[in-house]
Simulated scan of single mutants.
Amino acid sequence: MEKIRPKRLGHLVLTVRDIHASVKFYTEILGLEVSDWISDQMVFLRAGTDHHDLALSQIPKDSADIDDLPRYTRPGMEHFSYLVEDRAEMDRAAEFLQHMGIEIVRGIGKHGPGENLFLVFKDPDGNNVEIYCEMTQITPDSGYQPKVWERNIESFDQYRFKHFVVPPPQAVVDAKSNKK
């Protein structure tokens, strides 16, 4: 089987202590623009036309009681990503990862914010690596307006786990069943 063929480094997701202070820093100091929010728990920022090249995720205030996916109780990296050509390459990559015995964490799915397809897996040190494709492009003349998504299954996976190659994260399944 052939290895994955990334096109370029894509985006990074960081967990942060104070999401509003971090947004202020990255917009007022670094000059990034806000693309979308998920509630007040996650924000997507961009420097170019990709919907996001940096996302920030709020560390739960009482992380001892939260079984989040994955569980992060300190600032740091949640995942980094690489762009792949298309859905066919993502499907092929999922088969390759399974063949190689690489742990797949979540996906194949389609996020709400950014509309990108995703597949997340572990490297040898336990870091989350994502491959993605089909991300929303925001150009100056597109008229794109940031919005606030609810923190629910639609913001996590618009396909509702139909294309996941592994069982979905328990925390998301629990949240989905509590909405019924």
Rank of each mutant, 00 (worst) to 15 (best):
87 R>D: 11
12 L>F: 00
133 C>K: 09
32 L>P: 00
100 M>S: 06
16 V>P: 04
153 I>C: 11
8 R>D: 04
25 F>G: 07
133 C>Q: 04
69 L>I: 14
10 G>C: 08
115 E>L: 12
103 E>W: 00
140 P>L: 14
73 T>V: 11
122 K>I: 07
107 G>M: 13
149 W>C: 03
78 E>G: 04
65 D>P: 00
33 E>N: 13
62 D>H: 12
30 L>W: 06
114 G>A: 09
103 E>A: 15
22 S>Q: 08
134 E>Q: 14
108 I>F: 02
109 G>C: 13
141 D>A: 12
81 S>A: 14
166 V>D: 03
36 D>Y: 10
83 L>N: 08
34 V>Q: 09
155 S>E: 05
152 N>F: 13
125 D>K: 04
42 M>H: 03
131 I>W: 01
156 F>W: 12
120 V>F: 01
175 A>S: 13
65 D>Y: 15
115 E>T: 15
22 S>L: 02
136 T>Q: 11
64 A>E: 15
45 L>P: 01
67 D>P: 06
43 V>N: 09
159 Y>R: 14
103 E>R: 12
109 G>T: 12
37 W>Q: 01
114 G>I: 02
171 A>G: 09
81 S>C: 11
139 T>K: 12
135 M>V: 04
62 D>L: 10
164 F>R: 00
106 R>K: 15
28 E>V: 03
52 H>S: 11
132 Y>G: 01
81 S>T: 13
128 N>W: 02
100 M>H: 05
102 I>D: 00
39 S>G: 13
25 F>P: 04
19 I>E: 05
138 I>N: 02
3 K>I: 01
63 S>M: 05
131 I>L: 07
34 V>G: 10
64 A>S: 15
61 K>G: 04
30 L>M: 15
179 K>Y: 01
55 A>G: 10
37 W>L: 02
77 M>W: 00
129 V>I: 15
5 R>Y: 09
99 H>E: 08
93 A>K: 01
158 Q>A: 12
146 P>F: 00
125 D>Y: 04
164 F>V: 05
13 V>M: 03
132 Y>H: 12
43 V>G: 07
65 D>R: 15
104 I>Y: 00
24 K>S: 14
132 Y>T: 05
95 E>H: 11
48 G>N: 13
127 N>K: 09
127 N>M: 12
162 K>A: 15
143 G>R: 09
153 I>H: 09
33 E>F: 11
174 D>A: 12
96 F>N: 05
149 W>M: 12
41 Q>F: 08
104 I>T: 09
86 D>L: 14
118 F>I: 06
173 V>F: 06
160 R>G: 01
84 V>E: 10
108 I>S: 02
117 L>N: 06
41 Q>M: 10
129 V>S: 07
55 A>H: 10
15 T>P: 00
16 V>Q: 01
128 N>A: 11
91 D>R: 11
46 R>E: 02
109 G>A: 14
73 T>H: 15
103 E>F: 00
64 A>G: 14
44 F>M: 09
108 I>Q: 06
26 Y>T: 06
160 R>A: 10
174 D>F: 03
120 V>G: 01
71 R>G: 01
37 W>Y: 11
23 V>G: 07
